[in-house]
């Protein structure tokens, strides 16, 4: 890697980590497009590398959330129970897909999620509007 590439990766990592900590996402929505569009990675390598980067970022962010009192471990455990099985299915499927097709599907995923989030309102629920100090 050239110094320029290292600098670029550091900046991408910093932005992704910032979003991960701020928004509770892994940061992959930024890591994968940035590696593909700015650094010329294959979609598959970008995705695998993104997952590796996400693990320590999520660990540190979760530790911060735990100290702030906003982490309900029961919620996370229920999500993870389904998530581990899903991750196995998803990653094995991704290995069988063409690189360009995978990239297009990725873009579609982002558009659909953005549209849903911008157009809908939060459902009223027992914990809606709950303030965590």
């Amino acid at each position: 890697m050239t110094p320029l590439e290292v600098g670029g990766l550091l900046a991408i990592g910093l932005s992704a980590g910032f979003l991960a900590g701020l928004l509770g996402i892994g940061g992959g929505v930024l890591l994968v497009p940035a590696m593909v569009l700015l650094m010329g990675f294959d979609q598959h390598v970008a995705q695998g590398t993104s997952l590796v980067v996400i693990i320590p970022a999520a660990l540190l962010g979760s530790w911060t959330n735990h100290r702030n009192g906003s982490l309900v471990l029961r919620d996370a455990a229920a999500l993870a129970a389904g998530g581990i099985l899903g991750a196995l299915v998803g990653s094995l499927s991704a290995l069988g897909l063409d690189d360009v097709l995978l990239r297009r599907l990725f873009a579609l995923l982002l558009l659909v999620t953005a549209a849903r989030l911008i157009l809908s309102r939060p459902a009223p629920g027992p914990s809606a509007g709950q303030q965590v100090p």
């Binding site: 991960a20 995705q47 389904g82 998530g83 899903g86 995978l102 995923l109």
Partner: peptide, 14 residues
């Protein structure tokens, strides 16, 4: 989320 995470290399938070 797990399926999407594995499929797309994201955390699944989205």
């Amino acid at each position: 989320a797990g399926v999407l995470s594995g499929l797309f290399g994201v955390g699944g938070g989205i």
